[in-house]
Design a protein around this nucleic acid. Sequence first.
DNA 1: GCAGAACTTGAAACCGCTTTGAACGATGAA
DNA 2: TTCATCGTTCAAAGCGGTTTCAAGTTCTGC
Lengths: 361, 361
Amino acid sequence: MNLKEFSHRIGLSPTTVSRALNGYPEVSERTRRKVLESAERLGYTPNSRAARLATGRAMTIGHILPLSKEHEMVNPIFSDFIAGAGEQYSRSGYDLSLSVVRDEDEEEAYRDLATRGVVDGVVIHGPKVEDPRIRLLGELGLPFVVHGRSSRVQGEYNWVDVNNRRAFSRATEFLLDLGHRRIGLINGLDGMDFATRRLNGYGDALAARGIARDPELVFSGEMTENYGFATTMRMFDSPNPPTAILISSIIPAMGARRALHDLGIGLGDEVSVVIHDDDLSYFRNEGDVPIFTATRSSVREAGRLCADILLDTIRGAQDERRHVLLEADLTVGQSTGPAPAMRHLLGRDRAAALRRPQALT
Amino acid sequence: MNLKEFSHRIGLSPTTVSRALNGYPEVSERTRRKVLESAERLGYTPNSRAARLATGRAMTIGHILPLSKEHEMVNPIFSDFIAGAGEQYSRSGYDLSLSVVRDEDEEEAYRDLATRGVVDGVVIHGPKVEDPRIRLLGELGLPFVVHGRSSRVQGEYNWVDVNNRRAFSRATEFLLDLGHRRIGLINGLDGMDFATRRLNGYGDALAARGIARDPELVFSGEMTENYGFATTMRMFDSPNPPTAILISSIIPAMGARRALHDLGIGLGDEVSVVIHDDDLSYFRNEGDVPIFTATRSSVREAGRLCADILLDTIRGAQDERRHVLLEADLTVGQSTGPAPAMRHLLGRDRAAALRRPQALT
DNA sequence: GCAGAACTTGAAACCGCTTTGAACGATGAA
DNA sequence: TTCATCGTTCAAAGCGGTTTCAAGTTCTGC
């Protein structure tokens, strides 16, 4: 049933019905009640396609999920972020549109969303240190918010970020305080803004204690379980392995744990691990004493915040650009302990001998 | 710029321009080329909102992501499925709309999508054994495809499923052939169709060898890492633990591995594990010899197939309902081996003693 | 009792595209 | 040469809402 028929049936004009349903003040309370009740009874719902054309609003927020041909990987934090943001969209009557594109087509995809008029705003995921998408969206005049920041981009824009630098400098200090001196870093992909900030935080803390950064202990890559495994193996295959490792996500941390296990190295005992925990719903680092010592910041909460800011911007309630910097609290779990005094006993030979798990047990 | 202005500028009627851009045969090749080239040059793109109203098509597929208040968990396979499906949508010029709703509002959400006319079809995720959504969508007349099946629902509908029963009976047989007799099952949530089929497959294989199913060895729950950990701990806290475990996803398998490690029980050696592997992009069970012996079926591929079927149905190219049953191949990895003869030595006492990892190393 | 303000309601234009039905010129057959 | 046919193009009527502007009602204040 369309508006014309519905309004005719209840003996009112389309104008009045439209106003009543959209909460305009010009209709009397009595009429509004009648309209709402009749709509319920007769099962009338306005057609969104028509409303969107008439109002010029798409009532939709766009998210773009780029897939690179090489890695073919979906960022595991994506779904939790979306869950948080989507919750807020629903609450405000907005839809969420997701475009899956090859990463080389990503800019084109933003352009497309804007000119086709299917979204009122977009969220930028995973900004690089110098991300061209920010300038592009500015030029397109499409409201947006960045989940993260882009250090080398000039100008104001909305963003929600974790204080990655502080989180990683604190985590590093924590390990230093435990007596660790050789600390590895299993970081995210090179070029990603968050990875750079984490690296800086780690570097700062080391520098403050006068410790040189050993490039052999720093890795960057896509944060899969296998990546965590491979990099950990690599570190312990050297004559001078670390006594502690910082890991950028719980997923590679799983791989690191597997590696340590295979090598027969005690986690939290012989080697300490601190992770950054995005509080993924299927991978909770919880319990009285969490498995991993971690700097935690809920990505779902970040999604909610991004959504709120973006919707405010779109509704024009927000003139200036907004920034939210989330602090990640450090929670001590089972994966950290004092640096072992005997660390030098561990070296290439033992690592090689222990490579196969069966050889151990 | 809108169609009126654009067509005026290039000296053609809106009709002709619209036809040229949409590939109708009535326009001459020369005119079409001119239109396409001018559109490119002047930067004209049709407004989708208007096109959607005019055609009555939403050019959008809906996905609903339900969040339960208790678990608050996002299915980890969701993002990979979406990646697969979204790829196909893009290819066909369709958008993907994602609605995040509380699970008690899920049916209402489908109803809403249908009456508001914002989608042309939807995908049903995670069907229960008897899922009311299938009948509902039938009544609403909204094209749909189910990722999975619903055993106790009558009638025809599109679906793409893995042969869960066969996969789990084969995995069980594989373990039986290795001499295992006490085999645990860490399954998905009770009531989910896939979980029921897996349980049946497991039960079939045991029954075929005359082995009684021990309820103490079967668990169902939401497939988190912690769930895998807790259930494994529980199994080994009994006087008669299993020598092998089947696990429904690689995520709880991580937890199971952690538990075995904490208990000091060798994986693949003292205890065998077979998982079902959805081939998640950030969690690849790969390598020359994969970590886990697994029945594998790519959820991303399932997403692609669902999208293809749904789009065919919407375009009317498809009259009958379509079904795809994917077979999961069993790949042998490092996590399985012959049943240890000395299994009876392991019991409650040793398990209790080994509970804390530090006590071991 | 009446002018003017304050409420309510409705007619019609509009959002920007698609598509029907008509018109036009060119071509070919009679 | 004329008429039917074909290939192109266009004017105008939708699609189903929202919103402007005008008009009708009911209140106020005097």
